[in-house]
Lab assay of single mutants.
Amino acid sequence: RTAFSSEQLARLKREFNENRYLTERRRQQLSSELGLNEAQIKIWFQNKRA
């Protein structure tokens, strides 16, 4: 289980509010910017949509 920092969570929530689905390219960008792997971001979005 991933423990996200408050900064990472704030960024993910802001991104989710703008778009509930990420393109592969956007997921790669977020992964690089947040220091998370793409799978972690993908799962976070899946869980948030559920």
Rank of each mutant, 00 (worst) to 15 (best):
R26S: 05
E24G: 09
S6K: 14
G35E: 05
K42P: 00
E18A: 09
A3Y: 14
L12G: 00
G35C: 06
L34I: 08
S32Y: 13
F16S: 02
R14A: 13
F16E: 01
L30W: 01
K42N: 13
R49I: 12
A10N: 08
E24Q: 13
I43R: 13
Q8T: 06
R1V: 13
L12Q: 00
E18K: 14
Q8P: 01
R27D: 01
R20P: 15
L34F: 02
I43K: 11
R27K: 10
S31W: 03
R26C: 04
N47Y: 13
I41E: 01
R49Y: 07
R25Y: 11
A3N: 12
E7S: 08
L22S: 02
K42W: 14
Q28S: 08
R49S: 08
K48V: 07
S6A: 13
L30C: 02
L36M: 07
S6I: 09
K13N: 15
N17P: 01
E15D: 02
L30P: 00
W44H: 01
N19F: 05
L36A: 04
R11L: 06
K48L: 07
I43Y: 11
F4I: 10
Q40I: 15
N19L: 04
F16M: 02
R49A: 10
A50K: 14
A50L: 10
Q28M: 10
R20I: 09
N17A: 14
R11P: 01
R11E: 05
F4N: 02
Q28Y: 08
Y21F: 12
E18R: 10
A39E: 15
Q40T: 13
R1N: 14
E38G: 06
G35F: 04
R49L: 13
Q40D: 15
K42R: 12
K13W: 15
L9Y: 05
R49T: 08
L22I: 08
Q8S: 03
E18S: 07
E33Q: 05
S31F: 03
E38Q: 06
A10I: 07
A39S: 11
Q8M: 05
F4H: 02
S31G: 06
T2P: 14
L34D: 00
W44I: 03
S6M: 09
E15K: 01
I43N: 11
N47I: 13
L30A: 00
Q29G: 04
E33D: 07
R49W: 12
E33L: 06
R14S: 10
E15R: 02
Q46V: 07
L34N: 00
E38I: 07
L22Q: 02
N37M: 09
R1G: 14
R26H: 06
Y21V: 09
Q28V: 09
T23K: 03
L22A: 03
R26I: 06
N17Q: 13
N47F: 12
L34Y: 02
F4S: 02
F45G: 00
K42Y: 12
I43S: 10
N47G: 07
R25M: 10
S5L: 04
S31E: 05
Q29I: 11
N19I: 03
R49K: 06
R49H: 07
Y21Q: 07
A50I: 10
E38W: 05
L34K: 01
R25E: 15
N37H: 12
F45W: 15
E15Q: 03
T23E: 04
L34P: 00
N17F: 09
A50Y: 07
S6E: 14
Q8H: 05
R25S: 13
R14N: 08
E7Y: 09
A50E: 10
R26P: 00
E24C: 09
A3P: 13
K42S: 14
L34E: 01
S5Q: 04
N47S: 10
Q46N: 07
S6L: 10
N19W: 05
R11C: 05
E33P: 00
W44M: 02
Q8C: 06
E18M: 10
N37K: 09
A10R: 08
F45H: 01
A3W: 14
F4P: 04
K48T: 12
K48P: 03
R1Y: 12
L34A: 01
S31M: 05
E24D: 13
S5Y: 02
Q46A: 13
F45R: 00
S32E: 14
R14L: 11
N17S: 11
L36G: 00
E24W: 07
Q8F: 03
